[in-house]
Design a protein around this nucleic acid. Structure first.
Lengths: 121, 121
DNA sequence: ACGATATACCTCGCCTGTCAAGGTATATCA
DNA sequence: TGATATACCTTGACAGGCGAGGTATATCGT
């Protein structure tokens, strides 16, 4: 894994919601999906994942239920709620705004006044 | 301010380096530049800023010197080092990669196998 | 003369999200 | 029988951000 966690920090919940938006899923599978979607460049650690689940459930953005597997280990499935949908849309919008700002800031492309003395306010 | 800190977390140092790449500057001014560049949507808190300075200096990415103001409060100027330039370039590249991954993950656009069962590895 | 505001620096201690390390249990395959 | 994959979970530490507080100088209005 090569992407530092600080760059992803804050996106964990959005990523989970994005996946659950498509269909109910469970921890192990979500984790694998993320890993393979990023070609192994990023993975959520299990501890991170499960604390995120708890946060999301407490916030009312997801709910969980046990799957009825007849074989293999039990699975706890998660489903996104209506509030979760709203939260997801909002997070996505926030990310788009933040993306613009971050790009501007890290590339050092600043409005002229900010560099010339900043008398704008 | 509306952008949550977790979305910016990890970019603080890159943002500072980006500014110092253009010219030496000092804390207060850097802070103002960021605020005005984002139209007030984001600002580094002073505590964050100064701890970042210390980290960057300890890492050898910046060095500092006192300005010789004849009036007004003293200013501690920061200059980027060669190692700082390298670190900046690397951070920027990392950010571009992370940006792609984050976009993919938060929009839920996943390769097919990841959704179908993930037998790719 | 005095207070408010802007400039400019700094520190302490808390909060929050991440994660290493550890644990449990079931099924498959060599 | 042991290794590996699946599948879940918790504890404690760590690091970065930040609220709250502090210091000092200069300017401007009253």
């Amino acid at each position: 894994m090569s992407i530092t966690s600080d760059l992803i920090r804050g996106h964990t919940e959005t990523i989970i919601l994005a996946l659950l938006q498509q269909e109910d899923s469970y921890g192990y599978r979500i984790n694998k999906a993320i890993r393979s979607a990023t070609d192994g460049e990023y993975e959520l650690k299990e501890a991170t994942l499960y604390t995120a689940f708890r946060r999301l459930e407490e916030a009312g953005y997801i709910r969980s239920y046990w799957g009825n597997e007849e074989s293999g280990a039990r699975r706890r499935y998660y489903a996104i709620t209506d509030a979760g949908h709203d939260a997801y849309r909002q997070s996505l919008a926030e990310w788009h705004r933040a993306n613009l700002l971050i790009n501007r800031l890290v590339t050092g492309i600043y409005p002229r006044e900010a560099q010339e003395g900043g008398e704008s306010i």
